[in-house]
Amino acid sequence: MISIDFLDIRLDVIWSYRELFVRGIGVTLALTLIGYIGGFLIGLLVALAKISKKKWIRIPAKYYVDFFRGTPLLVQILIIHVAVIPTIFGHSLGPFVSGIVALILNSAAYNAEIIRAGIQSIEKGQMEAARSLGMPSGVAMRTIILPQAFRRMVPPLGNELIALLKDSSLVMVIAVNDLLYAGKVVAGASFRTWEPYLTIAFLYLILTFIFSKIITYVEKRFSNSYVPSSRRRIFSFGRSKGVDSE
């Protein structure tokens, strides 16, 4: 079988545990994608709450974001798993659910800030033009502001996705069987240290590489110009308006 003398790396050990790693990748991807989509949707609501004119909507949203950005994710995972969920449901819903909930709530807080900044980066005149045509603010937000704001959010939201992929490994602390957990199990079972951990590091690297390729593609699709054929590459905030726009 394959073996390398230096450090005595034995890839055959890894190969024999391949199913564990594959399942780990699956769980990590599920955590990341569900966490991201949930985090995006809740983040959108929190962002809208944060820019609300009503204080009783704005203030709780602010505390929410401050809490989840101001405390370690590891602490949040533990609080949710051992305290929040058992208190609400009377029993644990399993580590995977706890992990997902923690990741969703955490990434929602970060996404909320990105989305809020994106919305506020749109020129005031856009909202005013929409309102002056008689559009209610909700319609104006959906049809005029958000479509423009999302383009500007693509790069930071992309970073957030990659950060979440890596941070998802923290759920191992409550024994979710993700990729990191697979590494740990294999290490324990095979009495090897280098191979399992290097393997999962390598697998994480491949995942982040694939994700960043996808993000780069999306960024290009949604670059500065709205004209389909002549999309410019340079990303810029604050589109120049008026006579010098061409």
Binding site: E123, G125, Q126, E128, A129, A130, S132, L133, I144, P147, Q148, R151, Y226, R239, K241, G242
Partner: peptide, 14 residues
Amino acid sequence: EVGMVFQQFNLFPH
């Protein structure tokens, strides 16, 4: 019932 035209045009760029 009241149309408005702005100095900066404010067309919807998208």
